[in-house]
Design a protein around this nucleic acid. Sequence first.
DNA 1: CGCTAGTTTGAAAAAACTCAATTGGCGTGG
DNA 2: CCACGCCAATTGAGTTTTTTCAAACTAGCG
Lengths: 245, 245
Amino acid sequence: MPEGGGYTEFFIRRLLRSTELSEPELQDLRTLPIHVRDVSKNETISHEGDRVEHCVLVLEGFLARFQDTRDGKRQNLSFYVPGDIPDLQTLHLPTMDHSLASITPARIGMIPHEALRTLCDNNRRVAGALWRETLIDAAIARTWLRCIGRLSARARVAHILCELYTRLDAVGLAEEPIRMPITQAEFADAMGLSTVQINRTLRDLREEGLITVQKREMIVHNLPLLKQVAEFDPLYLHLDPAQRR
Amino acid sequence: MPEGGGYTEFFIRRLLRSTELSEPELQDLRTLPIHVRDVSKNETISHEGDRVEHCVLVLEGFLARFQDTRDGKRQNLSFYVPGDIPDLQTLHLPTMDHSLASITPARIGMIPHEALRTLCDNNRRVAGALWRETLIDAAIARTWLRCIGRLSARARVAHILCELYTRLDAVGLAEEPIRMPITQAEFADAMGLSTVQINRTLRDLREEGLITVQKREMIVHNLPLLKQVAEFDPLYLHLDPAQRR
DNA sequence: CGCTAGTTTGAAAAAACTCAATTGGCGTGG
DNA sequence: CCACGCCAATTGAGTTTTTTCAAACTAGCG
């Protein structure tokens, strides 16, 4: 948890990358009612088809959204790190069209829709900031589409590593070695590959001296080259304050 | 164009599937300033990296958003039909992280961000409806992720056909034979396949009596079976009024 | 010490791709 | 009206990528 910060500090830190917010506005965000809950690893927080009345703020640990196929395969739709609100879209689409689960033991904050709606109604700039958050989430999904649809296994793996590195960096969690508790099977389900392929691709990247991944930790030895392999352009994360409207 | 309707009628028709709007609210939408423009086929309307100040409303024809890869491959991110606003996200993310182009000759309406922002500021319900539109767009991208990442070519092709059928139906454009002016190469770039694979898969579906696709028109002979092949669940389109919050 | 979850490797099979050539439809200029 | 050209669809054949299956290995943990 950031120094002296409350539960929303990671979240606010990232919001401020794309939106200017006044001190009273920040205060409104800090005083949102939050029900903190600890979840164990691989716990499903909400299921496809559920109607939910809270948003989930990630405080510690990693979550993932996913959809399954009839024959039991899984597609991870995004990973979520501290400061993210994975289901912010439920504010206007309360019926879940996918599931949300922890992939590590995690601490989450449940924020009632009610409170968020009131906040949005009373403050357009905050409403805009939250809307923007959901749009960035959508941009990530679109970029994954390009990855999975058109890039090689090698580029896909490099891409997801670049993305996680950049997103963790945005909330100050990219100090190496970076805690990266995502299994190869979870990466596989994210990038539309098999675990075998993920394993071999990670080995190749390791042998080329680009990264080290072991014991749930990652070190990036050559970020520029990794980005080039990934065809990674961080534009879609919209983290650059210069892009503010 | 719907009877007696203005340019926004298709759009309003779909909004009303997910949001209740009052007559004055509808009137606000109908009187939005729109600069109508005709574009030829395969014209790029906005490029990745552009900063835009208008949203594009599709009046006639089909558009697509896409990203390219370094080696010249293309990934289509979604198709857009009359009534859609493909770049509504630019309201809060004015820098395009992908490109938007026509795939048929099309008529589009340019709506200034300014006007949309004013409307949103003055009316929370309209703001919510527009926000929701961007969320549905995101849900479509997520569902495509599952398609491309985990479904067979056969299921992917069936899925995109089901989706287009359902979305066209939502604006009253699904009378068979359905005008479906999307080339096999464009389907390929959407579903992460090669044109050859699309062609063979369409042939298979045709030979099984599920669909007829020819001369830019489609007839679905067995929708239930097509949906089953596609593992298609329309939930993600959030078109069901019963899902209203 | 044994269990479990996760990683790693080899080998064969399957799915999809690429390349190349052919066909069909349609608009346009002669 | 016909021939040409172009775009899109179609098909065959060989190649590549990735998957599947199976087994072995490793590390953390009670």
